[in-house]
Every structure is written in C-alpha cells, then in structure tokens.
C-alpha cells in the first residue's frame, strides 16, 4: 500500500555523486543555483543546463528530476508566454523560462541525492538546535505514514456512502469533515505514541546526543570540492563580464 506515498519517499540511488560528502553536494548545488541565477543569455543558460543535466545523469537521478520538473514546467511555459506577449523576443523569453527550470533543478539536485539521514547530519553541522532537527526528521519520516492514514480514512468513509466529488461547493467542504476529523485524531494518537516511544529511549537525556553518523571529508571529497571551486570562479567571471 505504500505505493501511494512513494513520491514522498526518498529513494536511495547509488553513484559517485551520492558517495560524496553531503556538504560537497550542497556546495555543488549552491554553485549551480548561482550560475542559474545569472544565466541571462542563450549561451550561458545552455552551459548551465548542460552542467545540471550531466550531473543528474551521473548521479542516476535524471528520471526523477524530470518528473519533479514537469510540475514546474507549467510555470516555465507561463513565464515564456508572458514575456513573449510583453515583446521580449523569442530568445529572451526562452532564456527566462529555462532559467526558471535551471533554478528549480539545481536545488532539487541536492534534495534528490541526499538522504534524510545525511540532511540531518548537515543540519547538525550547521549547529541547528537538536529539537528542531528532530522535529524535521519526524515530520519527513511520518508524512508518508499520515498520507497512508488519509487514504485509508477516505476508503472507509466512501465505503459508508460518502461521495466526495458530489454536490455544490458548500456540500463538498462539509464532505471533508468525515475525513479530516479521523485524520487529526489518528495523528494525535500517533504522535502521543511516538512521544512515549521517544521517552523510553532516553530522548531528551542530553541536549547534545552523540551521533552514529558523522560527516568526514575524504581526500576524494576535498578534491571534488577544490576542483569545483576552481572551475566555478572563472565561470562566474566569464558569465558576469565576458559574454
């Protein structure tokens, strides 16, 4: 039954990129993001897009990235059309639309290659407070679980004759009550059980728990980091001043 929530689950894919330290991927993602922001000509956006696409291909996430981009494509088309209507010319409109897609994909590069575990480590590295990190972790962990609950509730109520897509606006809103009430109640039950389970495993015993996973830059990570910066600085220079 987990198929429904599968879009929300992180899928572990392996490649050279995923084996890098998540901080390296974060910085790669940031660099791409900056490049995307300042890509204001056809050549620049082509180079940026090609870089993103090749990184996506190397890290085996191209398919998933394409799927997430599909959603933003609607906005991209809108941007294209509006600019066209405002007489910006075909090329410029196209560049602007592509730039939007580049911005989206450059950020999703990090999230699609980084497991929640690694994300947590990165958050710790940024010294965010433990409670905030844990709240984030449980939220991500339980979103699919709550979605499953929601679907089961909908099935149960539809089996009792509830017709969600029938009636006028007011009736439709009213139809949501039999779904929302059990959803809230089961979320409350779940969270109190969760709280009990956390307590009995000594949560809160310390503000600074040790961590099974620690981030460590290997020589390979350092190499990729330095190489990417060496490439990035002149590119920025060229993007801003040369063409």
């Amino acid at each position: 039954m987990y198929w429904v929530a599968s879009g929300f689950l992180f899928q572990r894919v392996d490649s050279i990129i995923q084996r890098l330290d998540p901080r390296v991927r974060l910085s790669l993602s940031l660099m791409l993001f900056i490049l995307a922001l300042i890509s204001d000509s056809a050549i620049k956006i082509t180079i940026t897009m090609l870089t993103i696409i090749s990184l996506a291909l190397i890290s085996n996430i191209a398919k998933r990235m394409a799927r997430t981009t599909l959603f933003s494509a609607t906005f991209a088309i809108l941007i294209f059309l509006i600019n066209l209507l405002l007489d910006y010319g075909l090329i410029t409109s196209l560049v602007l639309a592509l730039r939007f897609i580049a911005i989206i994909t450059s950020t999703s590069f990090f999230f699609l290659t980084t497991s929640p575990d690694e994300l947590e480590c990165v958050m710790k590295w940024f010294r965010l407070p433990q409670d905030i990190i844990f709240a984030f972790v449980t939220a991500v962990r339980f979103v699919p679980v709550l979605m499953m609950d929601a679907l089961q509730i909908m099935d149960a109520q539809r089996s009792r004759g509830l017709e969600l897509d029938k009636g006028r606006f007011y009736k439709r809103i009213k139809n949501l009550i039999p779904i929302l009430v059990p959803l809230v109640i089961s979320a409350v039950i779940r969270s109190s059980e969760l709280a009990e389970a956390m307590e009995v495993r000594a949560y809160g015993a310390t503000k600074k728990p040790t961590s099974l996973y620690v981030l460590k830059m290997s020589n390979k990570d350092k190499f990729v980091m330095i190489m990417s910066i060496i490439l990035f600085i002149p590119t920025i220079y060229l993007y801003l001043f040369a063409c």
């Binding site: 495993r201 000594a202 949560y203 809160g204 015993a205 310390t206 600074k208 728990p209 040790t210 961590s211 099974l212 620690v214």
Partner: peptide, 13 residues
Amino acid sequence: FGLENLQLPRDEI
C-alpha cells in the same frame, strides 16, 4: 537512537 541519547562514545554505539 537510544545510545546516542545516552551519549555513549561512537565506537561503542
């Protein structure tokens, strides 16, 4: 999880 909260050393965990 529980061991981290008890602040055990990493190799012990």
